[in-house]
Every structure is written in C-alpha cells, then in structure tokens.
Simulated assay, not measured.
Amino acid sequence: MFRGFIRKKVGSYTLGEQLKKFRSDGRITLHEVSRETRIPVKYLEMIEEGKYESLPPDVYVRGFLRSYAEFLGVESKKLISLYARERDIKMNLNGGGKPAAPPKAKYVPRFVVTPKIITAAVIALVVLGGFFYLYKEIGRFAAVPRLVLTQPGSNEASVEGNLITLVGFTDEDAKLTINDQPVVVSDSGEFKEDIFLRRGLNTITINSVNRFGKTATQIINVKSDYQNPEMAVSGKNESGSGGEVSGEQNSKRESGVKVAVRIDSLPTWLSVESDGNLVYSGTMLPGAIQEFKAGSELCLTSGKANQAFIRVNGKAEKILADTPGIVRDIVFTPND
C-alpha cells in the first residue's frame, strides 16, 4: 500500500453512510434527529458528509455521536471508534502527511466574565436590594395606609332598601374595621362587606391600620328609606288569653322557619346560613332589622350575641344570648 493510505474493504460503510442508512431504514429526517437530540442540523450534515475538519472540538463531536446513537438505538462505542479512525485518515491525507496548518487564533474580547466579577455583581445586587427594602419600609412607616372606597362612589349615599355593599381596597397587611367590626382583607388588599341599615341616616366609619400603627379613616353617611318590620308581637290571642295558637291559626302559618334579627346599640357582625347555604355575612348597624327564611334549618353566628335580638317564627322577641362575645351555629327549625 502507499504510505499514508489504508486499504478499505469493498462494500464497507463509512460513518456517514451508516448513519444515513439507519435514518433511511427508520424514515427519519435530520430535522427530527436535531429536534430530539438538540444537535444542530448543520453538524449532523457535516458528520454524515465526513466534513470532520469543520466540526467543533473532538469532545463535542463524541457527545453528538453518543446522543445520535442513543436516539437511533445503536451502540455508541462503534460509532465513536469509526469516527476516530476516519478522522485520523483525513488528518494523514491532509497535505501528504504534513501537519495541518495551526488554527487561527480566536478573537478574545477585552471584557471577560470571571467568577470574581460574578461574585461582585451578586453582592452589589444584594446590597442594592437591601437599601431598596429599607427605603420602602421607611416610606411605609411614615405614611398612612391607602384606603380607597370604590363602592359607593361618594361619602354621601341614599338607598331604597336596607342593604348597602361596601367595596374597596387597602394595604394587604392592614387591619380593616367597619364600625369597629373586623373585615377580611384579601391578599391583594381588596375587601367587600354587606351592611344592613336602619331606617333614616346611617353613619359608617371605615378604619385601616397598618402594622406601624398608622390609621386611615373614611366616613360615609347613608340614608335608608327602608320600612322596618314590626318586631314585638303579643304572646296572647285576640281574646287576651295566653296559650298555644289554635289549630286553624297554625295551619295558616307559612311552612319553614323565619327569624327576624334586630341589632340593639352596637354594630354587630352576623353570619346566616339557610339550609346549609351561606346567605349573609356582614355587619348590621344599630337599629337595623332583617328577616331571614329557610325551609328546614336556619343557622346564626353573631360577633356580639347580646346585641342581637331575634323573633323566631313570629313569636315574641328575645335576646340571642347573654354573652357579649361570639356565639356560633345557633340553629332554628320550624318547630321552634
């Protein structure tokens, strides 16, 4: 044989020919291989065409071949071994065995990112973030919380019924009260509360207190033209005698359970469930009266039990409970 040449058996396949045959057998395109292996199409074409001198450094090509072999389901060692042999042949053929010309020096930018530069940048970002946080906290300490009422749109309002809905937003970490009753604020600072009114002029005071003790206040006046239902009823029949209602009168009574609630002298939070469904959760102002109905069961929870007076199924008015605090899940049925 001639120096620098290696005899190849007739009918043997080069690396590129083998890869093309595998792809052809599987009806796979280079773009499909590139998508699955993340190897650029141009490098796949260079490998199959045997243009090894245009490929990246050897360590990357070996990685390409491992990924390619894994995708095709063949043994990667044979492909890498074949690549190394063909690469050596091409190097020997380059200039009749003369060493290849040294690669051109790559351009090295003047500014190089080093670990020291990265560490300094991270420290600078942390310091700047700390200063920004302190600046923000000092500003919040000096300022009152935001308190914006979007509904109603003004501090003077008039309604025909006995219910008004307050909607607005404040600082997400602020404590909100409406007429000294706590109100839940969402993570974004939004709040919504239904307020039962008494007939005439109602004054509603909204306070928002942030964690630094700063307070923002809004006061709105709401006029209600609602006609309060009568609460007090006699425990006697028309003849003046006490005792149970007659059978005829009892048959005329509506089915289900009805509870009328009247608030005495202090604003009171109330929650009402009708047959297992929440129908009201909000604050009732002093003097406000509201009737609730249910088919089989009415459940009341009050923030100030001794401020809530109730009338159950048309009977005489009574206090919900003697305690000044919270009472929960007081149940009323048609038999009460």
Rank of each mutant, 00 (worst) to 15 (best):
K116L: 05
R87E: 14
N162L: 01
N335V: 08
E291M: 08
L55Y: 06
I123F: 06
K9N: 12
V126Q: 10
D194G: 06
E17A: 13
F292Y: 15
A157E: 14
A120M: 11
Y43V: 01
L278A: 15
R140W: 01
V108L: 13
D25C: 05
D171N: 06
V127E: 03
P152T: 07
V59C: 06
F2I: 04
L65F: 13
L82W: 00
L44N: 02
G242A: 10
V259P: 08
V257E: 07
M1H: 14
T165Q: 12
Q249V: 01
R23D: 00
E254Y: 09
T217G: 05
K236F: 09
G97T: 05
F292K: 05
L19P: 10
D180V: 10
D264H: 09
L30K: 14
R38E: 12
R328F: 13
L201H: 13
I319G: 01
K315V: 08
S208N: 01
P286T: 03
S208I: 03
Q307M: 12
E70R: 15
A84I: 12
L298R: 03
E244Q: 13
I47S: 04
R328H: 04
L201C: 00
P229F: 05
V108N: 05
R198S: 15
R23Y: 00
L176Y: 02
G11C: 04
G130T: 04
T114Y: 08
Y135T: 11
K318H: 07
E45I: 15
S239H: 11
E273L: 10
N92W: 14
K77A: 12
P324A: 10
K20I: 12
E49I: 00
I178D: 05
F22L: 08
G303R: 04
S24R: 13
E238G: 10
I89D: 12
K136F: 08
K214P: 03
R85Q: 15
R66N: 07
L30P: 07
S296H: 12
S154E: 09
I206K: 01
I289H: 01
V41R: 15
S67P: 03
G325R: 01
